[in-house]
Computed example of a mutant assay.
Amino acid sequence: MKLHQPNADVCIPDGSPMSEALARTTHLAIGAHQDDLEFFAYHGIEACYASKENWFTGITCTDGAGSSRTGLYSDVTDEEMQHIRTEEQRKAASVGEYSAMIQLGMPSSAIKDSSNTSCIEDLVSILSQARPETVYLHNPADKHDTHIAVTLRSIEALRRLPIDQRPKQIWGCEIWRGLDWLIDEDKGLLATSARPNLQVALNGIFKSQIQGGKRYDLAVMGRRLANATFFDSHAADSETGFTWAMDLSPLVHDENLDITDFTLGYVERLKLDIRNRIAKFSAI
């Protein structure tokens, strides 16, 4: 498999041939940056951990050059940061026992350029060999520009696959904008209670970001717990963590669906829910 960027990196933690690592993949996640997968796709990582039937493959699209840096990393160059973040992602793949970890090494600017098809072509090449049953993406209501661009390129890549090769389930998960605002009927409930030590270990690997000024490790765990606690006001917690997600499967299975209209449909249903709740108790 030939990828576009010369700095693209492929890691197979157990040393299997690339073709075998992709062929056994059941769960796959596509993220923008190193650490995104561990934060939004833990549901898939945990489903495959120590399993003989399920295998998780991760794809990180960008090169990590533009990340925040202070403290110990304040004087690190973009080139050095790319190497650091690539190695952190490799280590996470090893700790999480991934089937494969592929880093495309693309500049964010190239992925944001809708006329540049390199990212889409790389993704199609990987997906054609992996054929996962479940895919995790950023959600299209995220507020990070690069996350949105990666989501759009990913959906385009999935739509280019033959219909019988497209994943059954595609989740759009939360990072830069939580999905607590989705009405309950629209929430994809991805339980993240299992193996808390694995969660902490994976989150803590990305020291260049944590020590570089962002406590993602604490924030992600706090969000998962808050999601579980504030989900149902009248029932005891059934889980200690949830990641909320949008079901993006219709966007991949029906190419005629408009991504903007599909996403705004969630907003319209929230708007209606707010209106109805106020009307139910209003004396005005």
Rank of each mutant, 00 (worst) to 15 (best):
E156D: 14
P167Q: 00
V150R: 11
L158N: 01
R153E: 09
S154N: 06
K168V: 09
R160K: 15
D142L: 07
G172M: 01
W171K: 09
R166Y: 03
H144T: 02
I155Y: 04
R160I: 00
P162H: 11
E156I: 05
A149F: 10
K168W: 00
L158H: 04
Q169Y: 02
A141I: 09
I170H: 03
H147Y: 08
I148C: 14
R166M: 06
A141T: 13
L161F: 00
D145P: 01
I175H: 07
Q165L: 15
R160F: 00
R166W: 02
A149E: 07
S154E: 07
H147A: 09
H147P: 02
Q169P: 00
H147C: 06
H144Q: 12
D145T: 11
V150D: 07
L158T: 04
R153N: 13
I175K: 10
D142W: 08
D142S: 10
I155R: 07
C173D: 08
S154R: 09
T151K: 01
R160H: 12
I163P: 00
K168Y: 07
A157G: 10
P167V: 02
R177K: 15
V150Q: 12
W176Y: 15
P167L: 00
A141C: 05
S154F: 07
K143T: 15
I170A: 09
L158D: 10
I148Q: 12
R160V: 00
G172W: 01
D142P: 04
S154K: 12
R153T: 08
H144A: 13
A149H: 08
H147D: 06
I155D: 04
I148M: 12
L161Q: 06
T151C: 15
A157F: 03
D145M: 06
L152N: 14
R160Y: 00
E174R: 09
Q165G: 05
T146D: 15
E156R: 11
T146E: 10
W176Q: 11
S154P: 01
V150H: 07
R166K: 14
I148A: 14
Q165I: 00
L161G: 06
I155V: 14
I155M: 05
H144E: 05
A141Q: 06
I148P: 06
D145A: 13
T151Q: 03
R177M: 11
H147F: 07
V150T: 11
